[in-house]
Write a protein that binds this DNA or RNA. Sequence first.
DNA 1: CGTACTTTTGAATCGCATCAAATCTGGTGG
DNA 2: CCACCAGATTTGATGCGATTCAAAAGTACG
Lengths: 205, 205
Amino acid sequence: MPATPHHLPVELQRLLPAELLSVCEAQHQGRGARLFVAGRQPEYMYYVIQGEVVLERTGRQGETVILQRTRQGFIGEASLQSERYHCDASALVPSDTVRLPVRQLRAAIESDPLFASRWIGMLNREVRRLRLQCERLSLHRVQDRLVHLLETEGREGRLTLDAGLKSIAAELGVSHEALYRCVAGMEKQGLLRRDAGSLCLTDRR
Amino acid sequence: MPATPHHLPVELQRLLPAELLSVCEAQHQGRGARLFVAGRQPEYMYYVIQGEVVLERTGRQGETVILQRTRQGFIGEASLQSERYHCDASALVPSDTVRLPVRQLRAAIESDPLFASRWIGMLNREVRRLRLQCERLSLHRVQDRLVHLLETEGREGRLTLDAGLKSIAAELGVSHEALYRCVAGMEKQGLLRRDAGSLCLTDRR
DNA sequence: CGTACTTTTGAATCGCATCAAATCTGGTGG
DNA sequence: CCACCAGATTTGATGCGATTCAAAAGTACG
C-alpha cells in the first residue's frame, strides 16, 4: 500500500519530488529479513526509517563483512544504475523501511534537474561518510576506532545503540570480545559512560 | 591556458558536456604540490590524468591518513556542494591534472539532466570503490589485504605501482615494514611475482 | 658526492584474535 | 508462571601477527 507522504521522514520529503513520494511503499522488515541479495536485478531502492539494515558480503572464508550499516537513510543507493546488486541487504533488527521503484527514480533524475542535484548531494554525503569509515578502519587500536566512531557518528560524543555492542564491533572490524573489553576498560578509566542503549564520551582530554 | 578537448582523457570527454570541456585547464603538479587544503572554499574541481594524487587528513596524533588515492579520476568530488574542503589534496609524484570551475560544474549539473545522470554514475562507482576499501580494511592480516587489493583494483591480479610500496602500505593501513615483509614472504612462497613496477598474483589456488 | 627517501632486515613488545567457558537476557512454549 | 533455549554479554588464557624502534643498504636527484 502506498504510504501517505506525511508518514514519511522529513529528509525523504525534502529530497524526493511529489511524483516519487506518491509511489513510495512503506514496509516492515522482521529481524533477519532480506531486502535484496547479490546478483539480483535492482527493482526497488530502499530507505530505512527506523531499525537497522546492513549491506553485507560474504568473504571467501565465509566470514560476513558489513559494508554499510544504516539506521536512517538509503541502503544500496549505489545500485541505482547497476544491472545487479553487488551485495546482500538484511535487517539486523525489526525495521521500518520505504521502497520506491528504481525505474521511476531513474526517470525522475533525468527529468528533474533540481532533484538530481539533491540526489548528488546525498551521494556526496555518503562518499564523505565512507571516507570517514576508511579513516576509522585504518586506526590500529580498538579504543581509537571506538572514539573515532563516537566523535564522527555520534552527537556530542553520544551514540545510541539499537542493536547491541556486537553489531558495533562488526562495523569497527574488531572481535566482539575486544570491544567489550575496550568499553569496560574505558568505563573504569572514566573515559566513557554507558547509559541504557547509548555510549557517551566524557569530556576529559 | 584552456586545454584543447582532444588532449583530455576519453573518460572526461564522455562525461562532461562541451561547455565544461572548453573551460578545463590542464595543470602539472610537482611532487608534493598541494592542490587544495582543508578549510578552504572549493573553487576548482580536480581530475587526475596521470601521476598520483592523494586526499589526506591529519589525525589528532599528527599521523597522516590517506582517504583517497587517485591515479586517474576526480579527486575531492564530494566537495562539489560543500562550503569548504574537508581534507588536503597533494601530489605524491609529479602529476598531470585538469581543473574545472566548481561554479560552472554546478550550473551544468542543474541545467543538463543527462550530464547529471552521468555524474551520479561516477559517484555511484566511487561509493562502490569505497565500500570495497572498507571491506579490505576490515581484513586483519596484511596478506589478506594485499590480495584483496590486487584482486579488486588490479587487472587479472596485476597492479601497477607508480609510487612504490610505501604508498601502498599507507593505503592498506599497515606499516611499510609489514608490507615489505609480506611481499617478500609471498614471493618466497611463489604466491606473488614482482616485476619492475608491478605486483602480480600467481594463479595458484 | 651528498642528501633525502625508499627498501630491507632484525629484535622486542603489544594488542588483538581466538578458543573456551560462564553468566545474563529476552522470548517461547508447556 | 516456570523451564528452556538462542543469542548477547562477560571474563580468562594463549598465541600470532603487526607495530615499533633501530639500523643498514640501496637509489634517485641536484
